[in-house]
Computed example of a mutant assay.
Amino acid sequence: MRPLTESDVLASFVNAGPEELQLVALPHDFPLVDWDHVDFFAWRDPRARGRGYLIAEHDGDPTGVVLRAAEGSSRARSAMCNICHTMQPADQVSLFTARKPGGAYGNSVGTYICADLSCHENVRLAAPLAPSEVRASVDRRIDGARQRSEAFVARVVEG
């Protein structure tokens, strides 16, 4: 992903109005992001518990979506993130939804993602996180997570 400035990040969001953009809080370590090793950029809002953000390439441009985390927890013992394909304890995976641009209330897309949106780091771990988890090569996991994050953003944008 090409390096992004704070202005680039704010301009990338396709499902947020001007008033919502004023609420966006970048992660505290934003100035330290190593853009050469970022395939997609995701973070939880440090000021709003239920909000997160995901920026991925779409048609060659960085495209951001505002995410809402579902409240409550699953009764399952473990769950898999649909972005990084990492098995986690169920309380570490959340249902995130993204409102479609210009869509009416309830017109949204959802998927299960690591609750802390750390998918970018998780795919770079070489050792399995769960005893029954089979891992592909790190490069294949990185490419897969990038493709799945881009596909999620495309589903939000294109409907």
Rank of each mutant, 00 (worst) to 15 (best):
V123F: 04
I142D: 05
F96L: 05
A90R: 02
V138D: 00
S132Q: 12
C114E: 06
L125N: 15
M87N: 15
G102I: 05
S108G: 08
R99I: 00
H120Q: 15
I142F: 05
I113G: 00
C84A: 06
C84P: 04
V93C: 05
E133T: 03
S108T: 09
F96I: 00
D91Y: 12
D116L: 09
L95W: 03
I113P: 03
Q92S: 15
H120L: 11
G103A: 12
A90V: 02
E121K: 10
L95I: 09
Q88R: 14
S94G: 01
C114L: 06
A136L: 12
K100G: 08
E133C: 04
S132P: 11
S108Q: 12
A126Q: 12
Y112F: 12
V123C: 02
H85Q: 15
I113S: 04
L125W: 08
A127Q: 14
H85Y: 12
P101Q: 04
P89G: 09
R146V: 04
Q88C: 09
G102M: 06
P131D: 03
L129T: 07
Q147A: 12
S137N: 07
Y105T: 11
T97F: 07
R135C: 09
R148Q: 07
C84K: 01
P101K: 05
A115F: 03
V138T: 13
Q88G: 02
Q88V: 04
M87K: 08
Q147L: 09
C84E: 04
I113N: 02
C84T: 04
T86M: 14
A136E: 10
P89I: 10
Q147R: 11
G102D: 10
D116Q: 12
T86I: 06
Q88M: 13
A115M: 03
A126M: 11
A115K: 14
Y112T: 11
R140H: 11
H85P: 00
E133S: 03
A90Y: 02
N122H: 15
A90M: 07
R99H: 07
A127L: 10
I113H: 04
R148E: 05
L117F: 01
G103S: 08
R124A: 07
V138L: 14
K100E: 08
H85M: 09
N107A: 13
V109Q: 00
G144Y: 00
D143A: 10
A127H: 12
P101G: 05
R148A: 08
S132T: 11
P89T: 11
I113F: 13
L117M: 08
T111A: 14
